[in-house]
Design a protein around this nucleic acid. Structure first.
Length: 668
RNA sequence: GGCGGCGUAGCUCAGGUGGCUAGAGCGACGGUCUCAUAAUCCGUAGGUCGUUGGUUCGAGUCCAACCGCCGCCA
């Protein structure tokens, strides 16, 4: 069957799209585009994951309905993909009826096969990770994210994951390429070998999700919901399963390394339980680090793709991400490296080669690809030709292994740089001066060889840099590049007599100001430094350094703003525990809290109602400025204040501890 | 703590089963051409191959310990 089905994860809409999302999606797009160019019937799916308690709460905090919030963010993702020339064939949202219907059908099938039962769970739950947490007591932090967990007791449906350990291990053995890279595969095998417990697959403590069939008090666990998108988008569980019949199982699910377990353990088990075919491969890439640090919302160092798009264009971003990083390993991003790559590889490399080659054809042959006698094709030409032919076949292999960086490097070394060298050695401008007829035919051979190599390099890189290569293709006089069949690409297909178009730079050089412009845009649009809401005068470097991202530019504290340790010691920061929390009537943003400081219980009024529901705070350990002068807010006396980070989007994030700390402990 | 991985030129990385003078790309420095986007091309840069011991005629390449970094352990 000549088909290819590739997927990105569906992105969780609790965060705005950033470079990490772009990275996954670009890699999939490059592969999908290449498959289409090979003539394979290709289906490329992406979408958004929109259910769960986290979304429900985020929406409440933003004063929106979950539908409004998810609609907005989902649209943002889609807009970004369009700007990045992502050629997805379908975009699924888990809130769509077609998905809900498919998920419920999947549930029913698994249940009918006897793999779902009802049980009770008591313990800690991390809302952020949508995760039940074992082996920690009440109030303990989530081992994954460090956020406080909540104690819950609920009746749930469970999935008999424990039945699948043997079948999963057999799968990993029989299909060694099922999980890649190798390191991830080994981790998964170790995990499964250590024993599988049944998995809770329903929630009854919130309602933003897909109802469990025949028991609508429960909603289906977000991961079962989300993973199913890979089949519901194809029509599984609907009246029209034509796409499903044609494209399932997927050829490859591309994911980030943080969700390996869900895709390599749970998903195959769900499919086995439902009696459905398994995907052929799951490939996990690494993280994109920003100047050595993990990009994350809480660090405030998330880089938005839009910034790069607006300054350098989509090809620059696509090229950089796939060239600079080794797929599977963590990669690092910086504006500096981006601009350097752009200039050295794209502007000075491919762009300049196109420019000089086409200009010479225009100048010396009146804009028409020259013909030449066979005798003019010498050893030098033959070397280039052979390099082009081997590169074509090696690219096939490298792309199929997701080795984008190697493939691109190869094209640049074997084709782009080789032709630049070839041109200088053969000096077409000098040949053009020669009056003799042999000079003319050599000139023709040199320019034909250059143009033909340019054509092949353009064809091979089109899946990665679609925009510029389309334009080079047109300038070569070849029309629509999408009509090209990569499977038939070979040397000599450039027809003499082809009229080249108007020569225009496809990658204009970027100057240093590009870096500054991008940095400035990030700082304005993505206020990187959450300010610690103590008091302006106490924004001391020692307090702030923990949350200050590197290179936050203008935020560097000036010496004359520094304070002494004595100044800092004036602030009495203490650990307290919230005993009572309630809304202050008539005030949207205020909560009245009673906080136990060990020696006394204080009343504190805090403007965090937009970010936290009162009930979610009870029992939580917080940091209190204990010696703040009392102040009246809405008639209530506030004795102290709660320390929270205050990102500029208006929400607040309370300071908390990863380890347990006794109430009353002084911070210093 | 258990299991696994990594540490090679300023930067990013190659270096199956041990053996020519340890490589590539980028950057830096010097030079050149002029078709081209102040692009190209040529040359140079002399890196304890994390540390310390082993095995061996010979070790980035095998073994051990140690240091540092990272991943997985619901």
């Amino acid at each position: 069957m000549n088909k290819f089905y590739i997927t990105t994860p569906i992105y969780y809409v609790n965060a705005r799209p950033h470079l990490g999302h772009a990275y996954t999606t670009i890699a999939c797009d490059a592969v999908a585009r290449r498959q289409r160019m090979l003539g394979v019937d290709t289906f490329f799916l992406t979408g958004t994951d929109e259910h769960g308690q986290k979304i429900e709460r985020a929406a409440a905090a933003a004063g929106k309905s979950p539908q409004e919030l998810t609609g907005e963010v989902s649209a943002e993702f889609r807009t970004l993909w369009d700007r990045m020339e992502i050629s997805y064939d379908d975009y699924i949202r888990t809130t769509e009826p077609r998905h809900q219907q498919g998920v419920q059908a999947l549930w029913r099938t698994i249940r009918a096969n006897g793999y779902i039962y009802k049980g009770t769970y008591t313990g800690q739950y991390c809302v952020f990770d949508e995760l039940y947490v074992d082996a920690v007591g009440p109030g303990a932090p989530c081992p994954v994210c460090g956020r406080p967990t909540e104690t819950v007791q609920e009746e749930n449906y469970f999935f008999r994951l424990s039945d699948f350990a043997d079948r999963l291990l057999k799968l990993y053995t029989d299909q060694p390429d099922f999980i890649r890279p190798e390191a991830r595969r080994n981790e998964v095998i170790a995990f499964v070998r250590s024993g599988l417990r049944d998995l809770s697959i329903s929630r009854s403590t919130f309602s933003w999700g897909i109802p469990v069939p025949d028991d609508p008090k429960h909603v289906i666990y977000v991961w079962l919901d989300a993973l199913a998108n890979y089949i519901t988008a194809l029509g599984y569980g609907s009246g029209d399963t034509a796409l499903y019949d044609k494209f399932w199982p997927a050829d490859v699910h591309v994911i980030g390394k943080e969700i390996v377990r869900f895709h390599c353990v749970y998903w195959p088990a769900f499919l086995m339980a439902a009696g459905l075919p398994l995907p052929n491969q799951i490939i996990a890439h690494g993280w994109l680090l920003f100047e050595e640090n993990k990009m994350s919302k809480s660090r405030g160092n998330v880089v938005r793709a839009e910034t790069i798009l607006s300054v350098l264009g989509s090809d620059a971003l696509r090229y950089f991400l796939l060239r600079e990083t080794v797929f599977g390993q963590d990669g690092s991003f910086s504006f500096d490296a981006l601009v350097q790559r752009y200039n050295s590889d794209l502007a000075n490399g491919l762009g300049n080669l196109a420019s000089r080659t086409l200009t010479m054809i225009t100048r010396y042959f009146d804009g028409s690809v020259p013909d030449f006698p066979a005798a003019a094709f010498t050893t030098a030409e033959n070397e280039i030709r052979e390099a082009a032919e081997t590169t074509i076949s090696e690219c096939n292999q490298l792309f199929s292994e997701f080795k984008f960086s190697v493939a691109l490097e190869l094209v640049w070394i074997k084709l782009v740089a080789a032709v630049d060298r070839y041109i200088v050695k053969n000096e077409p401008w000098a040949l053009a001066e020669k009056p003799a007829e042999d000079g003319k035919s050599r000139l023709a051979a040199v320019l034909y060889t250059s143009a033909e190599t340019l054509r092949i390099a353009t064809a091979l890189t089109h899946p990665i840099i679609p925009d510029a290569t389309s334009r080079i293709w047109e300038q070569l006089g070849l029309g629509e590049i999408t009509k090209l069949r990569l499977s038939e690409l070979k040397w000599g297909q450039l027809a003499p007599g082809t009229r080249v178009g108007k020569v225009e730079a496809v990658f204009p050089r970027a100057d240093k100001s590009a870096i500054e412009r991008m940095q400035k845009m990030e700082i304005v649009q993505n206020p990187a430094t959450p300010e610690v809401e103590i008091k302006p005068a106490t924004t001391d470097a020692t307090v702030n350094s923990a949350v200050r991202p590197p290179e936050s530019g203008s935020a560097t504290p000036k010496d004359d703003h520094k304070i002494s340790i004595d100044d800092f010691a004036k602030i009495d920061l203490r650990v307290g525990q919230v005993k009572v929390a309630e809304k202050v009537k008539g005030a949207d943003k205020l909560l009245r809290l009673e906080v136990d400081l060990g020696t006394e219980v204080r009343q504190v009024v805090s403007g965090i109602a937009g970010s936290y529901a009162p009930e979610s705070l009870i029992g939580r350990k917080v940091v209190i400025v204990a010696n703040l002068a009392p102040r009246k807010l809405r008639g209530l006396e506030s004795n102290g204040m709660i320390v929270a980070a205050a990102p500029e989007n208006g929400s607040s994030v309370l300071v908390s501890f990863l380890e347990d700390v006794p109430v009353g402990t002084r911070l210093k």
